[in-house]
Every structure is written in structure tokens, then in C-alpha cells.
Simulated assay, not measured.
Amino acid sequence: MPRFVASDNTALHYYDEGAGRPVVLIAGYGAPADSWALQWAALRAAGHRVISFDRRWHGRSDQPAHGHRIARHGKDLHDLLAHLDLDDVTVVGASMGASTIWAYVSLFGCERLAGIVTVDQTPKMINNPGWPYGFYGLASDNLGTFFQHPNAVNTGHGRTWPEPAATDAAIRRAGGVGMSRLITPDTYPLLFDHACQDWRDTVAGITVPALIVAGADSQFWPSEHASATAMLSPLARAAVVPGAGHPAHLDQPDTVARLIVEFAAQAA
């Protein structure tokens, strides 16, 4: 299985299949690269080289004691693109994978990128009167303890979560090796750092096209975050996926694959 060594000597795993203009897929918190398996065939059929990236502590990548910050994950994405010498890349991030892309852009600009797709990730998770599109119930006064509560993700909003066994079976049928989710107390500092970020200024400064996708029935935040985010940049537009919760690429895999393929063709 292909791996490379990032600049801090952490070995990171990725899949690399197909040929053509590259699309790099980055999964969310706790999810492996295999969580994109339901999009692989459509992207390859559209003529793309498809790279699916396991962030540190995710999937088959190393689990170092250091680097539990979104900025480090952005640097890891930079190291991956440099390792593969990729240019003209469409990067696609779901949930925390989207924050990884914004961290990359914050550090390196839109170097090597042709376009950006984010899947159900608000750029600011903390709610306030000027931004009501954050994580349901999360505010500055409860940020320190919010995600320590075992039921924090059970917001009472959105659609029913996908059945894990059925999702795992679908991923295996599509050529992945299963979800193998990894969420442990070791990675809570990463989740906290993720929740603290405000990427709105980064979105406003992008120099390539961006597609901000929301699940219509997200369990974590209002779908209006997509249009509010897209309004920050003249190069961004929004799409809302009907019948999808937060893991839109699992709930409505064909729709998300189509959105990525159509966007990548327009960004060429």
C-alpha cells in the first residue's frame, strides 16, 4: 500500500488509482480514506486520477503523539501533493477533511489547486449572533467542555445516521476495505482545535473555484451554511444535497459523485 513520510517523519497512507486530472479526497474525523469508495468508480470513469488520503491517526497512517492540530493536517496535505508532484488538483474534503483544505489554503494559498469542494463543513463551528450556522448548541461559553459530553453529536437534528454495517458492506462492494473508524481520547485535542477555527477569511481569499456542499438534513448544522459560505467569495457556489445528512457522500453517493465530476470539469 502506498505511503510517504511527511516533513515531521510521520508515515501517511493513501490510495492512488486511475489516470487523468487528479482529484484528492480527504475524509472527516475518525473516517478512513475508504469512506470515499462509493465515489471512486465514477471519478475514475470521468477520467480522473483518484487519490484518497488517510490523515495522521486515520485509516492506515501512523499515530504519532504530536500533530493534533488542523494546521499540521494542512501541512500534511501539502506534503502529499509535493510527494506526488501534483498540480491542477481538485481537492475534496468531507467534514474535518474540508478544514484540512482550508488549513492548506491558509498556509500555502491555492498553490497546486484547480478547485476546492467541501462536503458538509461549516467554516465556523462556534455560533454567535453574526454566524448562526455553527454546530448545534456550540457557543464560546461552552466550547471547553462541549465535545467531552458523550452525547454531543446527538443533536436531535437531521436524518437518522447511516446503519454502520450496511455502510461498511457498501464500501467493501465498491472496493474499499471497510470504515474502520478511529475516534479515541488521543484525538480529542484535534477535534477541539477543529472546533475553534474560523475559516471565513480563508474562504474569502481563495483564488480558485470552490463548491460548498451541504447535506439538506445534516445532524450537525443548518444546511444554510453552504450558501452563507459561498457568499464570502465570488469564486464559490453552494449546493445542497436532498436526502443527505452530514455524511452526504455516504447517504447520497451518486449525487455527490456527480457534483464532484461536474465541478472538476468546469474547474479544468
Rank of each mutant, 00 (worst) to 15 (best):
P2T: 15
P2D: 12
D8M: 10
D8I: 11
H13N: 09
H13Y: 06
Y14T: 12
A19S: 14
A19N: 14
G20S: 09
R21N: 07
P22C: 03
A27I: 08
G28K: 09
G30Y: 00
G30M: 00
A33N: 08
D34N: 13
A37P: 04
L38F: 07
Q39L: 06
A42H: 14
R44G: 09
A45G: 13
G47L: 09
D54R: 14
R55A: 01
R60N: 06
D62C: 04
A71I: 07
H73Q: 11
G74A: 05
G74D: 02
K75D: 03
K75A: 01
L80N: 07
L81M: 14
H83I: 03
L84M: 07
L86S: 12
D87T: 10
V89M: 03
A98M: 05
W102T: 08
Y104M: 00
S106Q: 13
S106E: 11
E111F: 06
L113R: 13
I116T: 03
P123F: 00
K124S: 07
M125F: 03
N128K: 03
P129A: 03
G130V: 00
G134L: 01
G134V: 02
G137M: 04
L138W: 02
A139F: 05
D141P: 04
D141R: 12
L143C: 05
F146Y: 12
F146P: 09
F147P: 00
F147K: 13
Q148D: 05
Q148A: 05
P150K: 12
P150G: 05
N151P: 02
V153H: 11
T155K: 13
G156Y: 05
G158T: 08
R159S: 09
T160Y: 00
P162E: 01
E163H: 08
T167Q: 04
D168T: 14
A169Y: 05
R172K: 15
R173D: 01
R173F: 00
A174G: 07
A174V: 05
G175T: 10
R181V: 09
L182S: 15
I183F: 13
L190T: 15
L191C: 13
F192R: 15
A195Q: 15
C196P: 01
C196T: 15
Q197R: 15
D201W: 03
G205C: 00
T207K: 15
T207R: 15
V208Y: 06
I212Q: 10
I212L: 07
I212W: 04
D217H: 12
S218T: 12
W221M: 14
S223A: 13
E224V: 05
H225V: 03
A228D: 02
A228N: 06
T229S: 11
M231R: 14
L232Q: 07
A236D: 01
A236K: 11
V240K: 06
V241Y: 02
P242T: 10
G243L: 00
A244T: 11
G245H: 11
H246R: 10
P247F: 04
A248M: 05
L250G: 10
Q252H: 07
P253G: 02
P253Y: 01
D254C: 04
D254E: 13
T255A: 08
I260N: 11
V261I: 06
A268W: 07
